[in-house]
Computed example of a mutant assay.
Amino acid sequence: MQSAPAATELTAVFARIQGMLLSQESAEAAAAQLSRAARELIGSAAGAGVSLLDETGRRASTAATDRAVESADAAQYELGQGPCLSAWATESLQRIDDTATDTRWPDWNRAAAAAGIASVLSVPVLYRDRCLGAMKIYATTAGAFGTREERRLLLLASAAGTLLGAAQGSDAPHRLSAAMQQALTDRTAVEAATGMLMERHSTDHESARRMLLTASRDQGRPLAQIARRVLERTADTAL
């Protein structure tokens, strides 16, 4: 169970951020506050960040506490693999106890280990029926995060989803930009294509999503465009 001091700190952070969310432009500043809060409230974290969908529907680090976080995130987007992308793709918590021995994202783990990052914890930022992005913390020592850190980061991410989603206001359906509306449409296409690839290749959700991410990276095309091509093509056509 969470301690009273920690609960008080989190309440203060949420109250400070909520006062900022008067417009969509405030969301990035709020994400920066949440990143700092994650690093400060989770003592074993050396750095933290929040990644959100940008206006094209692709992921971009909108807030990071330091250059190491920015660099690690950039490597994920370049390689098309890593715990942050997987947290976003699967909408589930991802934890790396030691980048030197973890085998799920070999290329990214090697890059992270070389940069001095040993432990990683990443969770999705959810708002109602969609995933806005992911929140992550890094540490320079192996085994830095356990169930206590998971609970705290999940709580922060839950608040982040509610607060960042609320930045759109109660009249969100009328105020959403065309770009954001397109992003939501794109997400539906990506989910449908992921399901089709799961069935076509008899694989799991994360592996199917990785196929889309890899094709997006290799072809230099937006993820949603790749997804639509999958939906339009026959089963015997290559991705």
Rank of each mutant, 00 (worst) to 15 (best):
A160M: 04
A157W: 02
L132K: 00
D107T: 06
G161D: 06
D102E: 15
A166R: 08
A114H: 09
A100I: 11
D171Y: 09
T99Q: 09
Y138Q: 09
R175N: 13
S170G: 10
G165H: 05
I137D: 06
T101Y: 03
Q182H: 13
W108C: 03
T101F: 02
R104I: 01
L132R: 00
A111I: 13
I117L: 15
A100C: 11
L121N: 05
R110M: 10
G146P: 02
G161E: 03
R175A: 15
A139V: 06
L184K: 06
R187T: 06
D186G: 09
R187N: 06
A166E: 12
A183V: 13
Y138H: 11
F145A: 04
T101L: 07
L155P: 00
Y127L: 01
G116V: 14
I117S: 04
R152L: 15
L163G: 02
T99I: 03
A144M: 08
D171C: 07
A139S: 15
A134D: 00
A139T: 07
A118S: 14
W105K: 09
I137G: 06
T141I: 04
Y138C: 05
K136G: 11
R104E: 14
S122E: 04
G146W: 07
A142P: 15
W105H: 15
G143L: 05
W105G: 04
R128V: 12
